[in-house]
């Protein structure tokens, strides 16, 4: 089985680069980067990644809406939220929408790798 293909979603280039660096240096393949929820939905259709990391607070389309849209396209989608928004109602909403895990920023790189392994990376 080849390296897991991952789509990174975050509106800041800084965070996308940070996640890319952590993932690639641990043997994962980053197949794409999305800048907002809408971009993530489009890139999911196009790239069919194994795993998606998803920010919540983003322009154009927020992460929760994007999770719902992606789950409509592929009910088997594996999405991990990486967001500063750690309020319980928001976490529950994301998990109900179909997210498999929820990491609250700022997080240690190790936590991202653990979450990815847990969802089947």
């Amino acid at each position: 089985m080849g390296a897991k293909r991952i789509l990174i979603t975050d509106d800041t280039a800084f965070m996308r680069m940070t996640l890319r660096k952590v993932l690639e240096s641990n043997g994962y393949e980053v197949v794409g980067e999305a800048e907002d929820g809408l971009d993530a939905v489009e890139k999911y259709k196009e790239l069919r990644p194994d795993i998606v990391t998803m920010d919540i607070t983003m322009p154009k389309m927020d992460g929760i809406t994007a999770i719902r849209e992606i789950m409509k396209i592929d009910p088997q989608a594996r999405i991990i939220v990486c967001s500063a928004m750690g309020q319980k109602p928001m976490v529950i909403e994301a998990l109900n929408a179909g997210a498999k895990d929820f990491l609250v920023k700022p997080f240690q790189p190790q936590r991202v790798l653990e979450a990815i392994q847990k969802v089947g990376g």
Binding site: D11, T12, F14, M15, T57, A84, M85, G86, K105, P106
Partner: peptide, 12 residues
């Protein structure tokens, strides 16, 4: 973008 991320994380 790093400043945006900083503001986002600290304020949130």
């Amino acid at each position: 973008s790093a400043l945006m991320e900083l503001g986002n994380v600290v304020i949130t």
